[in-house]
């Protein structure tokens, strides 16, 4: 199926907008969505494979929990807890990778449910882009920073990019939106879009698979995304670090004792997404 992204603008309070265009949609499409999201992205799998044995982590916006069993080559060597708003996705995440069951919690990515710095690592894959204001997206990054250890915490964030892969299955109607060639026109503040999820409704009201025939009842559920422009995610991480009184840079650049910081260890683009690898440090 080809995804289509349509520009949108936020109306009303961001919380309510997210409730209508993110949380409700995921709860309704959970099963079908999950069946299309089973392959781990290589950089995420690598991030988890590099985590030392005995570390405990948070997957903020875990969805169907596909990253919870990773690394599969050394099962039980790390422990990742899944957090999500969608009850129906959590029911799937609980059983991700089969037995044993995974630990998952229902909560908001802006929520604070932990002892300070309780985790060794945190990942937030394809989640921050569902928050409907710059302030809330920055807060989500602050929460991730606060959730990990101030001495060695590692964070991986993945968000949807305005720069789309040529092989991407997302299409952007030129008149309504833009094409890849128009990238210079995209504002540095990114772009708010709807990505419709087309489903077939059966008589009992439940949502089933996508329609094969035109005779079916269609239902379009619009999912909200903020597509990040180049550099927007790292700028936001720097602002979040500043809010938390953290120095930005590698620990080698600072000599005073007691100083705390955040290092952007890696920044990149992979398959229509920007990603950021952050490391916390303390002198």
């Amino acid at each position: 199926m080809v995804k289509i992204a349509v520009p949108t603008s936020i109306q009303g309070r961001p919380q309510e907008y997210e409730e209508a265009h993110v949380h409700n949609v995921y709860d309704r499409i959970a099963d079908h969505f999950s069946s299309t999201r089973y392959k781990p992205w290589p950089i995420v799998a690598q991030f988890l494979s590099d985590i030392p044995t005995g570390w405990i982590g948070l997957d903020s916006g875990t969805g169907n929990g596909k990253y919870l069993p990773i690394p599969t080559e050394r099962p039980g060597s790390i422990f990742t807890i899944g957090l999500d708003r969608s009850h129906n996705l959590l029911e799937l995440a609980k059983c991700a990778g089969g037995s044993p069951t995974r630990d998952v919690l229902r909560g908001d990515v802006l929520g604070d449910y932990w002892r300070l710095g309780a985790f060794d690592y945190a990942l937030s894959i394809a989640t921050v882009h569902h928050l409907a204001s710059p302030k809330r997206r920055k807060q989500a990054i602050e929460r991730l920073i606060q959730s990990v250890s101030s001495t060695h915490g590692r964070i991986l964030i993945y968000v949807w990019a305005t720069k789309q892969d040529e092989l991407s299955r997302t299409s952007f109607p030129k008149k309504a939106c833009w094409s890849n060639e128009d990238e210079t026109r995209i504002s540095p503040a990114g772009q708010d879009v709807f990505v419709p999820w087309v489903t077939q409704t059966s008589t009992d009201g439940s949502v089933t698979v996508e329609p094969e025939t035109s005779k079916s009842m269609y239902m379009v559920l619009n999912r909200y995304y903020h597509m990040f422009s180049e550099g927007e995610l790292s700028r936001m991480a720097e602002e979040a670090a500043k809010e938390l009184d953290l120095k930005i840079g590698s620990p080698d650049e600072f000599s005073e004792r007691g100083v705390k910081g955040l290092h952007i260890s890696e920044e990149g683009w992979e398959r229509s997404n920007y990603y950021l690898l952050l490391t916390r440090w303390e002198k």
């Binding site: 009850h87 959590l90 029911e91 069951t101 998952v104 919690l105 229902r106 909560g107 908001d108 929520g111």
Partner: peptide, 10 residues
């Protein structure tokens, strides 16, 4: 059903 609900009201 094995899932703690940590959500807080606004």
């Amino acid at each position: 059903n094995g899932i703690p609900n940590m959500l807080l009201a606004e």
